[in-house]
């Protein structure tokens, strides 16, 4: 399943969540402004809210409960300055 991280084309597996697809490629999800701490999910069941990520279309999703769909464009190293 093709998707992009910060504009770079990558692939995940069908059945991946957005979180598992990202963590198969890199160790974390980046930071979520205004907190500079890097995150990689925590509860993996949609409760702790630690894995929200930004999408290129301006949306935000919880990575651990979002199924990976082809073409998803996620922004991880964007520190939110363009809010």
């Amino acid at each position: 399943m093709p998707f992009t991280i910060d504009g770079i084309a990558v692939t995940g597996l069908e059945g991946d969540t957005l979180l598992s697809a990202i963590l198969a490629i890199r160790p974390d999800l980046g930071a979520l402004a205004p907190d500079p701490r890097r995150r990689a999910g925590f509860c993996l069941i949609g409760a702790c809210q630690d894995c929200w990520v930004r999408l290129a279309d301006g949306g935000r999703v919880q990575a651990c409960t979002t199924p990976l769909v082809a073409g998803l464009a996620v922004l991880l190293e964007d520190d939110g300055e363009r809010w």
């Binding site: 059945g15 598992s20 198969a24 160790p27 990689a40 999910g41 069941i45 702790c48």
Partner: peptide
């Protein structure tokens, strides 16, 4: 405890049994 790579044990279970990783 907030470092990437720390998960709840339930989270580890979800990864194993549902995501198979």
């Amino acid at each position: 405890w907030t470092l990437p790579g720390v998960y709840t044990s339930g989270g580890a279970r979800t990864a194993l049994e549902s995501l198979r990783c």
